[in-house]
Design a protein around this nucleic acid. Structure first.
Length: 392
DNA sequence: TCTGGGGTCCTAGGACCC
DNA sequence: TCTGGGGTCCTAGGACCC
């Protein structure tokens, strides 16, 4: 018996310029100005006796931070997420610079997700400011439903969002970006050629800078051109998996389900230093930073109730090249002391660093192969303390 | 253009076992 | 002793996302 399979109805909901919009709730006087939210280490605005604020400007900044979010006014000046703040200051010196307040964003994030959950309960969390929602089982017509979701999010947070609704996650995600901010875009199968194919390949979630550049070299710029490319040619260039996936994506095909919960795979902590640290001269500082990172990681593991078999270290050197080393242990670990001993083991036995030459820009620790604390058996061998000097 | 911090998934080679 | 082929786990690096 053939199974009749109705098309799914999937929404992608994306908060508009989320961090910056949350900040505008606190500082409404900044509305319509170019505003940039940057690293957490920036000083907050100073409050005057008359309760007005003194705001920092981008041109006053010096350091290694990047733009976390910018308002649409700042984007008009060429300032986008991920860009170095020093570079942004050249483009928009007068733009207002605010520190990121992640606790505030997480709080509002919970509120908008809760508001959506009152209307539709099948939600996939895609980070702090976006979600997928499976609306297939709901009876309500698409457009009124989308309007109701937006109204509910606005009532809960005071913020606007953009929604794309389509037969799958891939198209819903592209759709939510088509009429930003505060937009609703409904896409059907039959709209793919007209509305999706003219777009650049980078609009596909999963096609980044490298893949796009590779495609450009093959003469493929638009999603339509990708859809017309022979699958064999794509698999030759990108491998069997990615080649086939690219071809499907360009044709608007995506069967991936809306996943309501995933167990975490790894937890990590890292820090980029204000200045690059010398392996020998700054040994004490590096050692203290390593211990602090392990302490924070142990806190996270404790809070979430996990332990991990794989403990690793991450180093970015002054020349920006990256090295990672990890060891999988028979014993799952969660205590600071164990993490620290395991990380030092990686550093001493697996990574060659020239203590006289190399400078370190970033230091990170990671815990993978997670199990719950109840599953962590306590009898297997743990890492031994590392004695001797350097590195760290 | 001197480039954060937290994640996920994929690939490819080597070890090891049957 | 020299030769297989498959499966799984581990590791390092890289692409990508928010």
């Amino acid at each position: 018996m053939p199974v009749l399979c109705l098309p799914r109805r999937i929404a992608h909901l994306d908060m508009d310029a989320f961090f910056a919009s949350v900040e505008l709730l606190s500082y409404p006087e900044l509305r319509d100005l170019p505003v940039v939210v940057g690293g957490a280490k920036i000083a907050p605005p100073e409050k005057l006796p008359d309760s007005r604020y003194v705001f920092a400007r981008l041109k006053d900044y010096s350091g290694r931070g990047v733009v976390t979010t910018s308002t649409y006014e700042a984007r008009k000046l060429g300032v986008f997420s991920g860009m170095g703040l020093m570079r942004s200051a050249q483009l928009a010196p007068e733009a207002i610079l605010l520190p990121a307040r992640f606790d505030a964003y997480r709080n509002i994030s919970r509120r908008f997700k809760h508001a959506v959950a009152q209307i539709a309960s099948t939600i996939e969390d895609r980070g702090i400011d976006e979600i997928y929602i499976d609306l297939t089982e709901l009876a309500e017509a698409t457009l009124p439903l989308a309007q109701r979701l937006k109204a509910s999010v606005h009532a809960a947070t005071g913020l606007t969002c953009s929604i794309g609704i389509a037969p799958n996650k891939l198209l819903a995600k592209i759709g939510s970006d088509l009429q930003k901010p505060d937009g609703i875009t409904v896409l059907l199968r039959e709209n793919v050629a007209e509305r999706i194919w003219p777009l650049h390949v980078k609009k596909i979630n999963g096609v980044g800078a490298k893949t796009a550049a590779h495609l450009e070299k093959l003469g493929i710029h638009s999603i339509g051109e990708l859809a017309g490319a022979p699958v064999e040619m794509l698999t030759q260039n990108f491998g069997p998996r990615i080649g086939a996936w690219l071809s499907c994506a360009a044709n608007g095909i995506d069967d991936s389900p809306v996943v309501t919960w995933r167990a975490p795979k790894s937890l990590s902590r890292e820090i980029t230093f204000e200045r690059d640290l010398h392996v020998r001269h700054d040994q004490a500082e590096l050692s203290a930073q390593l211990a602090a990172l392990c302490a924070r990681l142990a806190e996270d593991l404790e809070k979430k109730g996990y332990a991990g078999h794989t403990i690793g270290v991450k180093l970015r050197f002054a020349d920006f090249h990256l090295a990672t080393r990890e060891i999988t242990w028979p014993q799952a670990m969660f205590a600071v002391g164990d993490l620290l001993r395991a990380v030092r083991q990686c550093l001493k036995h697996k990574l060659f660093v020239d203590a006289d030459q190399q400078r370190i820009r970033l230091l990170g620790v990671r815990c993978g192969s997670l199990v719950t604390r109840e599953q962590a058996n306590e009898t297997a061998p743990k890492p031994e303390p590392q004695q001797g000097k350097l590195p760290f």
